[in-house]
Write a protein that binds this DNA or RNA. Structure first.
Lengths: 200, 200, 200, 200
DNA sequence: ACCTTCGGGACGACCCGTTAAT
DNA sequence: ATTAACGGGTCGTCCCGAAGGT
């Protein structure tokens, strides 16, 4: 990532995001962040208010991105199956755009202050509700088989969320290709289909 | 959890597992662990060698459980689809048996020493290879549709691994029920089936 | 040194002397002492009262040996030159008998409690006075050249005391041989003698 | 000692040298060093890397001084007897310039890390070789009586090294006077000389 | 009588987030 | 943006003692 054209403050956020992601919040020191920018530890405080705020802003930003994407997907006039595909694409696009941000979002929210955590949790709940709404609509209109929507949504989120553990945007798969592949798995499963069996 | 009949050492490990899981390795202090056992911080060191060793043993134990289970599932004489079901059941059974252990295993391995981390990574690779072997066998014998087995294995692991984030063994779902539900999702997907539609 | 036939208490003192000598008082731990005896740290306290007492007794013993030897040398009816030779032989014999004891005596007395230190200092002063008495007597009877006896005594003690830094009783030189060699240096110096020069 | 014009780092080294000398390395705490400078213990670490490094630098500095002086004395074009006198003067001048530094050098090198200790030991060996070279040259040219040069060099070092135990530069004797007195002892011994007796 | 086990409590070096002065 | 420092905290170690086993 080019850190050249960013303001000093944004550079700090960028470095913090990377280090929080790689080493975790508590294992990252302010001096480490400063060293990457070739300044002294104390100098950070001309630009930021503190470590805690650093974490909060990073998590909050990621959180907003997900919520915004989810609201868009669930609010579109498309059929539920297409909404689901859009939802998955968006989710993976956000992760692909900033794997480090995603890692911090998913892993480090525990280290927020209670108030901050409450805010983030609320966002997360809202986001998850969008997927459940899509699923319900799909069942209602007969596109999806009936089932436990709550459990199903967790199943889908599992697939989506876990990607930050291994996905790298510079790998062979684009985020969209990955989303489409996962969409197929989610929709059709992996069992051999009757006609395929007949083909052999 | 009954900590009555455990040796002091095992009590320490149990508390450490819980706190590492809830708060993370670096945010957990040795004195916190001690306080839960109503002894002083320094007294821990009559029983253990250090914080790092605590983490390593906890992660190592979880790692062993997964490897053992994976080897058993992939080595059974059953058909691949049954192996897969067994694999998923075992995986969730391990998580259900100790959610805290699973959280530490999945989240805190980054804080191991390089050597320790290498050991754990090797175990993880071995474990993942068992699932891929099952999937390959299933494709070979026509039980599973052909596809990218590497990607598919990641998809399945996503579903399995993410459970530690929300699953509680004292909830409404047993680990086995959850495994079976997930197995169905993985095999058949959520798209409404033609005959099912006809059934209605 | 055979530690077989000693009482447990004496074994502890023997080990402590060795470790205090090699590593110093503060760098030696009670557990280390115990480990050499293949018991646990806490078990030492059945036999001794504490670490400080250990040091004090070791230093005190060495101190007594020197004082006793000095008193004997200075109190003998021999001529001062012979008293000096006896003094030097005795001093080195004590060091040779227990280099570790000598090291602790010379190095670790700083770590005694003030009271204990005062006792040892008094002994040391007494010991040094014996040498000065011998020197004064030698000057008075014309055996030694006149000079600053205070400085001279320091010069002689330097040679004697420093030996614990390098002397090993199992080396090529016996303590007596060393004492005699040093006696010659002290008496005659190293300058070539006139007749020796004539010899060439 | 004026600690006014020194950099903070040098002040720390000066205090550490004094305390290591008086109380020994292990009995000196970082907080004690800090207290003398009227700062908090943790604040030391803005200027230095650690306690071990403190010791190493202090010992290393003293070590360098001795080696440099020894090389100069043994390398001069003077006659061996004059080289010896110069060697002794330099040695005592170094001790007089910093008795504390000498004490640390002679006493605390045991507490260095193995690698550091090896460096210091090599320096010490080099230094001692210079004196032996002077002695050999003196014997070869007939200025010194023949004898065991190895033992003789130890004898001379004893006198020189032990001085840090009692010598204080603000006492009645200058370092040079002391060196010259010791030089006379070493060269001529203390036995009454025949012609001197005749002179009386 | 001897030793182990378990623990207390103080203290060790060192590090961290942060700030005031410059 | 730096420099120097604070103050509180971290893990770990140490000496020592009490309870209890053999």
């Amino acid at each position: 990532v080019s850190e050249q054209t960013l303001s000093r403050k944004d550079q700090i956020y960028a470095v913090a995001e990377r280090l929080f992601s790689r080493n975790g919040y508590h294992a990252t020191t302010m001096r480490e962040i400063a060293r990457e920018l070739e300044i002294e530890g104390g100098s950070l405080y001309s630009h930021i208010t503190g470590k805690q705020e650093l974490l909060y802003q990073i998590v909050l930003r990621a959180s907003h991105k997900f919520v915004r994407a989810g609201r868009a997907a669930a609010g579109s006039p498309d059929a539920p199956a297409d909404q689901l595909r859009a939802f998955m694409r968006q989710h993976l696009a956000i992760i692909a755009a900033s794997v480090d941000g995603a890692v911090v979002y998913f892993h480090q929210w525990r280290h927020l202050e209670p108030e901050q955590r409450a805010t983030i949790t609320a966002h997360r709940d809202e986001y998850e509700s969008y997927l459940r709404r899509i699923l319900s609509a799909g069942v209602a209109c007969g596109q999806f088989a009936a089932g436990d929507e709550r459990l199903l949504s967790k199943f889908i989120f599992s697939a989506l969320n876990w990607t930050y553990q291994w996905y790298r945007p510079d790998g062979p798969l684009s985020a969209e290709q990955l989303a489409d592949a996962y969409y197929e798995y989610v929709m059709a499963g992996l069992a051999a289909k009757p006609q395929e069996e007949a083909d052999r």
